[in-house]
């Protein structure tokens, strides 16, 4: 597909074009951090953000989401769908890959999650190529670059951005803002930006890679390191809740004060929390923190590998960033492979 060259002014034009028909969500400054929020004006967008508190997932599968409304007196329920068109702007390749995982998880084997898909089908993804920051490790899990999963991908090329369309919709939008076709030299600058990114990645698995980490996990079930992690982990669930590929949720019913009208909601849940694997009768299948960490890391590196043909960790580093005791998948994998 043909590339375009977008000046900063063109990017502004692109955002205003999007704002006409989409709720535009982009990285903005939030106190000491960045977060994906709905923007009111282009100037709020921080193209230089490192990572965000929560992944863009929160706009496709919100932390708390109403699934249906019911009336107890009538024994009736009506599903609730929110299909407000949303444009997710400025997603790094790791987050783009993460959304591909969510797309698969919420639609495979004819199990369609209509609540997620209603939003996803009306959404647009505009990617933004990045540079590594202190916590990420994308090259170890195969998510350094996004080849697909976006409608438009922007890569810095000098003072401008090299833009590629990844879908028909993306191509139409690029054409509609009358962006200039890119020259070969622009494509080269973008290529150079990506090459520099790859060079700057220092946080890596040192003995395994995205394809072999699965085998490592299978051999290290009884490794003593899990017990060591038991001592450190607070089991606060922060790692789960900031993860772009964690999609487990809890379902709760809430009834209003008239005791008749109610809502069924889902809330993000996390496998590090003590009640996650507790069942009726009080039995807990993962009672110890060490068992829960082992589960989480296996869930990301091993269990779903065959289904997703990749680790389901995308190396965004949010879990390490959020952890007050800095439990780090890179350190864990390297310790296990010693």
């Amino acid at each position: 597909m043909q590339g375009f060259l977008l000046t900063k002014e063109n990017i502004k034009g692109l955002v205003s074009e999007l704002m006409k028909s989409y709720r535009v969500v982009a990285p903005v400054k939030k106190e000491t951090r960045f977060d994906f929020c709905e923007i009111e004006k282009f100037e709020d967008i921080r193209m230089d953000y490192d990572t965000t508190i929560l992944p863009p997932k929160k706009h496709l599968s919100p932390p708390v989401e109403t699934l249906l409304k019911f009336k107890r007196s009538e024994n009736k329920a009506e599903p609730v769908f929110d299909n407000t068109p949303v444009a997710l702007f400025g997603l790094h390749p790791c987050d783009i890959k993460a959304i591909r995982h969510l797309d698969q998880a919420f639609s495979e084997n004819n199990n369609y999650d209509r609540h997620y898909l209603a939003k996803r089908e009306k959404s647009l993804i505009i990617g933004l190529e990045c540079q590594p920051y202190d916590y990420c490790f994308c090259s170890s899990v195969g998510s350094t670059f996004a080849k697909d999963g976006f409608d438009i991908m922007l890569t810095p090329a000098g003072d401008s951005y090299f833009a590629e369309a990844g879908s028909k919709k993306g191509e139409e939008i690029l054409k509609s803002i009358q962006a200039k076709p890119a020259q070969e030299s622009d494509a080269k600058k973008a290529e150079q930006f990506r090459a520099e990114k790859e060079k700057k990645i220092v946080r890596k698995f040192n003995k395994v890679n995205a394809s072999t980490v699965k085998e490592l996990m299978e051999k290290t079930w009884d490794h003593k390191h899990w017990k060591e992690l038991e001592e450190r982990c607070l089991a606060c669930g922060s790692c789960n809740l900031v993860c772009p590929t964690c999609f487990c949720f809890d379902v709760q019913d809430d009834v209003s004060l008239n005791l008749n009208d109610g809502e069924r909601k889902r809330l993000w849940d996390g496998c590090m929390l003590v009640d996650f694997a507790k069942v009726a009768g009080g039995e807990n299948f993962r009672e110890h923190r060490s068992q829960r960490i082992r589960h989480r890391i296996n869930r990301k590196m091993n269990y779903l590998y065959d289904r997703f043909n990749s680790p389901t960790c995308v190396g965004c580093g949010r879990c390490v960033r959020a952890c007050t005791v800095k439990i780090d998948p890179v350190e864990i994998v390297n310790e296990l492979s010693k």
């Binding site: 939030k30 000491t32 977060d35 508190i53 929560l54 607070l234 922060s238 900031v242």
Partner: peptide
């Protein structure tokens, strides 16, 4: 009645807050 058995971190993350330790 359901009284949560998880820590405040969970609700803080759901609220999208910047972690106090970050500040």
């Amino acid at each position: 009645p359901e009284i949560p058995n998880h820590p405040v971190c969970v609700e803080c993350k759901l609220a999208g807050n910047v972690c106090m330790y970050d500040k």
